[in-house]
Design a binder for these strands. Structure first.
Lengths: 228, 228
DNA sequence: TTTAAAATATGACAAATGTCAGGTTTTGAT
DNA sequence: ATCAAAACCTGACATTTGTCATATTTTAAA
């Protein structure tokens, strides 16, 4: 049902550069897997023998800090590839990947990837471009983390969730994080996150209904991010 | 005097994968440049038409935050390549590079690089590996920035300066940062940095003589980093 | 449906960090 | 050697953030 020619080509820029033959090989060796919310796809320190192409769902990529807290580095959704960095560097995973919405993905053994990398320069350059982009994003995160207040980072996170994952018919964010996950994204204590979310509610910037969150005034959130 | 066959091969892992011919072309097109302490090598937003291989000296790579403060993302020294990410992504520079110790480097026009990338898979894979490493380092920085206190980050910075740049015959750090640069590395106010450095001095962990810094008790610094 | 566990919420307080305002010392150009 | 600029330092205080304790609500399993 889901051949790589259809799935991957459409979804993953870097795999666009593969030839028909190469894609066929990937198609033949790949394995579909699903993970329930909360399931670990892989753990920090684990040796990966392939990469994971997310077909559907959302996964958090996090790293354990020496103080015992998890820092979420990135949220990966449809079209993203997990484990690529570790496979290319031939290192064990530096991040853990855990599903925060049921995840449906293809596992591609590293041999297919590495072989194509070594023989098809177009593919290598595409992967390189992709990683260059990840690196720029990481630099941006470093600046945000070190120069913005917790309040600014939380406001920014809500805007990110809206832009990246969208809203449903009722205007609720399609992806709503638990307070704890939100805390681990912005790097703060759960209580601080709860307090700031309460404040945003009081000020009419967002509203909640059970687990769901609706952004009511994105301009005000933007102002918070800008430090106004 | 300095042919790439001698300079680059020895210094830059990723360029090791170039053939004799490719290296010769680079050698022919490269340009040597020097920058005095404080000089900008390139600025954030600038279009780069090549990469810079640091032959000697130290450069800080920083990004301006929306609050007007500079965040130093990385210190680059002998053997590091600047601007590679931007050239590969075909984007303008996301960071500024400024010399903090007189810098001596080779400028290599992007054509040489891009052409080799597109034709020599070994080279592409080496560059990819290198960037995968940068990405892991960036992830580590994100975790440190968001989960460690300013004091821990400053202690860590001193240890890093010792390990990365070494000490002279008198035990002074070869690279000593101004308080302001140190603040921009760890992402805090200059006054906070000064206070913490004073505290470290009082506690006998470091001592200073003019601009120079000597680490007296690295174990104590390690303890601070570990939160003891 | 009931119920225990998890998530959310809030107060009170402590600790960390930022800001401003003024000093002193060091540096580098003349 | 002199002098102005830059770097460094310190105190006082405000703000932000973390921690602990506890209460409430929501969730999910039996």
């Amino acid at each position: 049902m889901s051949r790589c020619e259809n799935c991957i080509i459409r979804q993953f820029n870097s795999l666009r550069a593969m030839s028909k033959d190469e894609l066929k090989k990937v198609s033949d060796t790949k394995v579909s897997k699903t993970y329930k919310k909360g399931d670990a796809i892989f753990e920090e320190g684990e040796r990966l023998d392939g990469v994971f192409c997310v077909r559907d769902g959302v996964s958090k990529l996090s790293k354990l800090s020496s103080n015992g807290k998890d820092q979420i580095i990135k949220l990966a959704t449809k079209g993203e590839i997990l484990g690529q960095r570790s496979v290319i560097a031939e290192e064990s995973a530096n991040l853990s990947a855990v599903a925060i919405k049921d995840v449906d993905l293809c596992f591609i053994p590293k041999e297919s990837i590495l072989h194509t990398l070594n023989t098809n320069p177009n593919f290598a350059v595409e992967v390189l471009r992709h990683m260059a982009n990840d690196l720029r994003e990481a630099d941006d995160v470093i600046v945000n983390m070190s120069q913005k207040t917790v309040k600014q980072r939380i406001a920014e996170a809500f805007i990110y969730l809206k832009n990246e994952f969208g809203e449903d018919d009722n205007g609720f964010l399609k992806l709503s994080l638990s307070r704890e996950d939100m805390s681990n994204v912005v790097g703060t204590a759960t209580e601080s996150t709860i307090r700031i979310i309460s404040e945003f509610k009081k000020k009419g910037m967002i509203e909640t209904s059970g687990k769901q969150v609706r952004i009511k005034d994105i301009a005000k959130l933007q102002n918070v991010v800008s430090g106004l």
